[in-house]
Every structure is written in C-alpha cells, then in structure tokens.
C-alpha cells in the first residue's frame, strides 16, 4: 500500500486520537494542512483500503474489569503455524493472534494469542480448550498473565518535523491482581 506523505501524517494524527471537540476533523485538517472535507474523504479512503482497520473508541481492558489478561504462546513448526494460527484467530475469546520471530534459545515460541478475561480460571480453561481443539498437546507452550501495566497508549508515528496530534495522549500506571 503506497501512502502519500499527507496520508501518512493524517494516519499518524488519527492514530494518536481525535480532539474531543464539535468538529474534530476540522481540527485535524488544520494540523495536516488540508480542508475539512478532504480530510474526511481521505480518512474514508484510508479506511476502505484497510490502512485504517477501525476508527472509534479505543478502550482499556483493565478499566472495564478485564484483569485476567493472558499471552499464550506456542512453538510450532513452520509448516503448521499458519494453519493453526488462522484457526486460533477464529475463536471469539482470542483478541489478537499472530506469528512472531523466535529468539532462541531464550524465546523459542512463534505463535501468540492474547486473551482478555475477567476471571483467571476461565481464561486458563479457554487456553486448555484451544490446546484440545487444535491438537497442540505436544507443542511447547507457555502462558504469561500480565501482572502490572506500566503504560498503554496509542502508537506514536510522528516523524521529526511533522505534525503531531493536538492531543497529547496520556497514559497511566496501574496495579492489580490478574
């Protein structure tokens, strides 16, 4: 997907967050040097092309009561990981699922699934369900529950000399049993 510089600036601003004002796209238009109508039209085109996956509220799971947050990981052979990953992604309780590069010997795992739950026992049972349904009993596995969040905010794509969103996203630190 080839993006123009102005589209990149627009995406960076949109990713960082809209101002909570009556006409947020006019505010964004001002930052990137476009008109309001063109800003809206370009955002729509970026959404249609998939460069924006979604546009709307980005919530924090913990504040909504989802405190049992697990990162479940497996080490699967290259010829099997994609098929398993695609099936795993279809389970409704799997929020995110992807393949990452291993860092052996310290980190041998290549398949990752994130599960956000309210109850650790339920999440543990859901992971056991994945293992059973997808035949992962033999695969090396680990489950890493989150303990404390130090930071969560939107990605910062701003480049030096380019506009940053008007809204300085804030982050909070929180503790909690999970």
């Amino acid at each position: 997907m080839e993006l123009s510089d102005v589209d990149r600036d627009l995406l960076a601003c949109a990713a960082n967050g809209l101002a909570l004002v009556e006409r947020p796209f006019a505010a964004m238009a001002h930052d990137v040097g476009l008109g309001e109508d063109e800003t809206i039209a370009r955002l729509r085109a970026l959404k249609d092309s998939g460069a924006i996956k979604r546009l709307g509220l980005v919530v924090r799971h913990r504040e909504l009561g989802y405190r049992a947050n697990a990162m479940a990981v497996w080490d699967l052979p290259e010829d099997r990981v994609d098929a398993v990953g695609q099936r795993m992604a279809a389970f409704p309780f799997v929020t995110l699922c992807y393949r990452r590069r291993r860092a052996p010997p310290r980190w041998p795992y290549n398949l990752f699934a994130m599960i956000h739950g309210t109850d650790r026992a339920v999440v543990t049972a859901q992971i056991a369900g994945l293992v059973a349904e997808l035949g992962l009993g033999e695969a090396p596995q680990s489950v890493l529950f989150s303990r404390r969040r130090y930071k969560q905010r939107g990605a910062n794509y701003a480049r030096a000399g380019h506009p940053v969103s008007r809204q300085e996203a804030s982050w909070t630190s929180s503790t909690g049993a999970s």
Binding site: L11, A14, A15, N16, G17, L18, L20, L43, L46, G50, A51, I52, K53, R54, L55, G56, L57, V58, V59, R60, E63, L64, Q152, R153, G154, A155, Y157, Q167, A169, T172, S174
Partner: peptide, 12 residues
C-alpha cells in the same frame, strides 16, 4: 478515568 485510551484510528 482511563477507560478510554482515545478515540481514533487503529492502524494495522
């Protein structure tokens, strides 16, 4: 209160 991180775009 922290429930909302932001209202904006999620970029793959």
């Amino acid at each position: 209160t922290g429930t909302l991180s932001r209202i904006g775009a999620v970029v793959p």
